[in-house]
Design a protein around this nucleic acid. Structure first.
Length: 459
RNA sequence: GGCGUCGUACCCAAGUGGUCUAAGGGAUCGGUUUGCAAAACCGCUAUUCGUCGGUUCGAAUCCGACCGACGCCUCCA
């Protein structure tokens, strides 16, 4: 199956056509660095990673941006009301974001630009919009004039009369007009930059518009973000770029649905968030990642501990399956994909259908386990298994390869195990069972297989 | 008020006109195997896809109404 994505602009699945033959340009809206990201934020970031990996799997190279929003009301609030410097605050949370991305096996982006380091480009961009006649100045605030841009409303049916906006502070001409530049006010303190219109700072929608066009170009392949950014953020972002440049900014707009907690979306403003760092105390990064990938990115997902436990069990099952093989000794050079592999890839190419792909992988595991069970494993099936394990992991990236470290069983456990083996040989089941209990109480599980005892560490 | 999404087994979750008497995971119960376990394997657990109508030779899938949940229109992944 050819690669296709659900495009939020058309609300339909569309076959993916890249602008250039091999390189795909992708922009994803990144975190606002004023506190720790929560698991809902990372649902979107893991979705970016999934997209990235599927593009790579399809033979593309990817140039991608995940920006760091370090100019924002909440950041300004914290800096002016707490004893912390701007750079210390933003770089602390930027670091946490990058570290957690890394621990969830998210591949690094090509660029992670900070908004604050591209102010002059933003000023230049706004000046161009004013010159073009689609932006206007009201007391040092610059607004985009939505009535001057006929295509405004690509993501929603806009009807000014039905807007429930209570305010039109600051003197905007039309309710939908939005800020490109915000004039300095007392509460901004020292966080301000000089511009042709006086001191102030760029507004959010302009930050992303400029970072995207500067680092990737005037026309990009894919733009993604959380569903809440669809309107107004992405509407406003693309309106600016398209009004100025006259071309389509992004060909595909992909939006990830929300993580739900207690029947509401998980969000910082609702205060119902679960931080990734807290969850990592209880669950492995692989478990979190699999949880996030085990439902489709466009469906709402309720958070629950039960689901994380289920994910953890899935990983155990996959690990046990992989333990059947000595992967290093299987040579897969020049071998082609079989039908299972192709079904797996088809599922992913069909708008990143990870649940279906996961189902194919488990189907495969089941098939191979049957062969192992009735002793009809062949070299060919081993090869297919290794290929699938590699393929699966290149997308899901949840297999902990350091697991099969057979040397790391502690000496005392090994002694207890061999003592148990002795008792079993003597058919002293009572004594053997006591030793098994002892081993378990020390954190190790013991299984009797055809090839003798097998020890695994409890999780 | 306007715009939109969703409702599949005990739980989670794919499928969106015929291969669906509905994938996969978890859970339960029964079986094979095992000294006993564990793992693995086999079998059972939705003739049914929120409800009611309609279109069609044929619908979980399309259309309509209704019920329920949620999102956006304001910062938000």
């Amino acid at each position: 199956m050819k690669l296709q994505f659900y495009n939020s602009v058309t609300s339909e699945k569309e076959e993916f056509q890249s602008i250039s033959n091999n390189e795909v340009l992708v922009y994803g809206c990144g975190p606002t660095v004023y506190n720790s990201p929560h698991i809902g934020n990372f649902r979107t970031f893991v979705f970016y990673d999934l997209l990235n990996r599927v593009l790579l799997q399809n033979g593309y190279t990817v140039k991608n941006v995940i920006n760091i929003t370090d100019i924002d009301d909440k950041i300004i609030d914290r800096v002016n009301n707490e004893d912390i410097a701007f750079n210390d605050l933003t770089q602390k949370y930027e670091r946490i974001f990058l570290d957690q991305s890394d621990s969830l096996n998210i591949l690094p982006s090509t660029f992670n630009p900070r908004a604050s380091e591209h102010i002059s480009e933003m000023i230049h961009f706004i000046k161009s919009l004013i010159a073009k006649g689609v932006a206007y100045n009201v007391d040092g605030n610059i607004f985009f004039d939505t009535k001057e841009y006929s295509k405004y409303g690509k993501f929603v049916n806009i009807d000014d009369d039905n807007l429930s906006r209570e305010d039109n502070e600051l003197g905007k001409k039309h309710p939908n007009d939005f800020a490109l530049w915000k004039a300095w006010k007392d509460s901004d303190g020292e966080i301000t930059w000089a511009s042709d219109w006086g001191n102030g700072r760029p507004a959010w929608h302009t930050e992303c518009a400029v970072l995207g066009t500067q680092l990737l170009g005037e026309s990009i392949d894919i733009h993604c973000g959380g569903i809440d950014l669809k309107f107004p953020h992405h509407e406003n972002e693309s309106a600016q770029v398209e009004a100025l440049l006259g071309n389509q900014f992004a060909n595909y707009w992909l939006h990830a649905e929300h993580l739900i907690f207690d029947s509401e979306k998980m969000s910082k403003s609702l205060g119902n968030t679960l931080s990734v760092s807290d969850l990592l105390k209880k669950y492995s990064p692989e478990t979190l990642r699999l949880f996030l990938l085990s439902s489709h990115y466009r469906s709402k997902v309720s958070f629950s501990d039960k689901k994380l436990d289920d994910s953890s069990k899935m990983i155990d099952k996959i690990d046990r399956f992989i333990n059947n093989f000595d992967l290093d000794t299987i040579d897969i050079d020049g071998v082609e994909y079989g039908s299972f592999h192709l079904s797996f890839l088809d599922a992913l190419n069909d708008d990143l259908n990870t649940p279906e792909a996961l189902g194919v992988f488990f189907d495969f595991i089941n098939t191979i386990n049957k062969n192992i069970d009735n002793e009809s494993m062949t070299e060919d099936l081993k090869i297919q298994s290794k290929i699938f394990i590699n393929l699966f992991n290149s997308i899901f990236s949840i297999i902990n390869t350091s697991l099969s470290n057979k040397e790391s069983i502690p000496k005392n456990i090994q002694h207890l195990a061999s003592a148990r083996e002795e008792m079993r040989n003597k058919s002293d089941w009572n004594e053997a069972d006591k030793l098994r209990q002892k081993i378990e109480s020390l954190g190790w599980l013991i299984e009797d297989t055809k090839n003798g005892q097998k020890l695994t560490q409890k999780k």
